[in-house]
């Protein structure tokens, strides 16, 4: 159980990282970071200033990352409990 929870924790670490990094996107995914022009669905360049967006505005990925981050934290808690630190 000790090693199993550790392996799950390490496997889900990238999900936690990406989830946390995406939290700070203050513009969401629907406005240009440079000129704040409203972004259309599936548009990869801003019509106003030509800013190149790095990702599409919507999709199932936020929920996948959120689920992975949750599993990462849960497996970390399990691993720490197995270590009898608590």
């Amino acid at each position: 159980m000790n090693l199993v929870s550790l392996v799950w924790f390490l496997l889900f670490c990238p999900f936690l990282l990406v989830f946390l990094l995406r939290l700070g996107n203050s513009h969401g995914h629907d406005a240009c970071p440079f000129c704040d022009t409203k972004r259309k669905r599936d548009e990869m360049n801003c019509e106003e200033c030509g800013f190149e967006f790095m990702e599409k505005p919507q999709g199932p990925f936020p929920w996948i990352f959120a689920g992975g981050a949750l599993l990462c934290v849960l497996s970390l808690v399990t691993w720490i409990k197995c270590q009898q630190y608590l």
Binding site: L10, L11, C13, P14, L17, V18, L21
Partner: peptide, 13 residues
Amino acid sequence: AAAGGGMAVILSL
């Protein structure tokens, strides 16, 4: 930064 952080985690794994 996200890619680098992700790779750092994978390599540590």
